[in-house]
Nucleic acid binder design. Structure first.
Lengths: 266, 266
DNA sequence: AATATAGTTTCATTCTATGAAACGCGATGA
DNA sequence: TCATCGCGTTTCATAGAATGAAACTATATT
């Protein structure tokens, strides 16, 4: 009764796997490109950035618009309202998001720290759930935020066992998304990652200055780790020692959630 | 300098406009179908409900999964985590959502009632923003909720000037989505709609028993009304007279928002 | 007004998307 | 244990959808 959950880490970013369903893949790239840039985009920008012809891009946009995935004002395009019901559906139906909330809540109460749950998507991670701790964590981290795999305990633990080839891609993506400087190398990244054999990651002032964190991966049996859970705390309220003392609790919560996910026969 | 904003009301639901980009249109239908059913879906269900062959449905799902729009556990599919960043992008960049929030906030403070902002999508409307009033409105109405056009002031005002042919489609969609009973007719619907010439709609106990509401449409110059704003209040805290007394304020807020939307040169 | 730039439509060609059929596989039941 | 069934997956030949060049229109810039 093996349960295999996956949101394939596949392309998700710049064209990679080609072949199947070309037009659909391209449409998804246009859609992704629209999100990447904060500002609304013009047709010609989208076409150029996605590397496709104007007519093709236009046709894609028109269909997406018909379904509300894209809206248009004058000549500029942006994400449309149909994504809201989709997000609602995800938050209400995805086992990770649903089962995760109470687990996070309990852990936050136990530890007094903020707890967050991330899913890997391509070469980034996405914040899927979060519960505030006692120390309020001023900086804002809303649901759906795209975060790097290269920084923060919750990111690093997801690439702890990765091959050099994959780390290379991770680094490239982090640079492309502006999370790392231009010259950032795999070697530098490796120096941050947990020692082999260590099942948790630690970070201090890595993604956000003044914040410490520890993170562990959820165990999707028979598959590369795809989700992670982390504790965050402002430096004023904790120390490396103290936050690491919570790793056993964190580990326990993560196992509990992993088991819940296996159990639910979706 | 006419500003034309549109999220085409087009298909969005059951296949309608066919022709262009068949594979993409079908993919969007699969995606929509996945949201419609709360429960995760099996491949064969999706294929049947969308009226397409198994191989085609499978190929579509695989591509959507590559981009995180869909996730799979064993043999069942559901909406994937990539919709969260998309929703975030919408909420942060869409002029309606962005400009709407402060306007709603102010109106809620002024009137003490809950204020909500909706966008038409296909033959439904979607809750895009909401601010609670003093009387807390117990029932939950989260962002992204799909609501009918046939009930509630915010819905009815969006079809106030519609043709019979269109009302017929609205009625069909409302029945299909379970918002209206099987035998519901266009005539019944018409009896609820505001009198011709009246620029606001009123409802009492229509969608939710014990709630009164008034709604007005935003004026996208040169286009069918696509967005609406409404005040809601529990019956204990107001009366038809009292809530209607707020219509001028509501109208004013809606105009203000409409102007903001025109102004922003996106 | 003239020019340049961006968007849109047309159309012939190519190759992708498609479903029928064959296959694999696990579950159910005899 | 074996046969049967249902569902998912792969293969493959074919139809027709997706594509980009080019022509055309609209909009901005000088």
């Amino acid at each position: 009764m093996a349960t295999k959950t996956s949101t394939t880490p596949g392309p998700a970013e710049e064209g990679a796997k080609s072949s199947n369903m070309r037009s659909l893949s391209r449409a998804m790239e246009v859609f992704a490109e629209l999100q990447r840039a904060e500002r609304p985009q013009r047709l010609s920008d989208l076409a150029r950035n996605c590397g496709m012809s104007l007519p093709t891009t236009l046709r894609i946009l028109r269909v997406l618009q018909d379904f509300g995935m894209v809206s248009q004002t004058d000549k500029s395009y942006r994400i449309g309202p149909a994504v809201l019901p989709a997000a609602k559906s995800f938050l209400e139906n995805d086992p990770l998001a649903v089962a995760g909330r109470p687990v996070l809540q309990q852990l936050a109460t136990q530890t007094g720290m903020s707890v967050s749950l991330h899913t890997r998507l391509g070469f980034e991670r996405i914040l899927v759930a979060r519960v505030q701790g006692k120390a309020p964590m001023q900086y804002d981290l809303p649901l759906g935020k795209r975060l790097p795999l290269t920084r923060g305990a919750a990111g690093k633990i997801l690439i702890a066992g990765a091959t050099d080839a994959e780390l290379q891609q991770v680094v490239a993506a982090a640079i492309a998304s502006g999370h790392e400087e231009q010259g950032f190398t795999v070697e530098e990244l490796k120096s941050r990652l947990p020692e082999p054999g260590c099942d948790y990651a630690y970070s201090a002032n890595e993604r956000v200055v003044g914040v410490l964190s520890v993170g562990v991966a959820l165990t999707n049996r028979a598959g590369r780790a795809n989700e992670s859970m982390a504790l965050n705390c402002p430096a004023e309220a904790t120390t490396e020692e103290k936050i690491k003392a919570n790793v056993p609790e964190l580990r326990r919560a993560a196992s509990r959630l992993s088991e819940l996910l296996e159990g639910s026969v979706y």
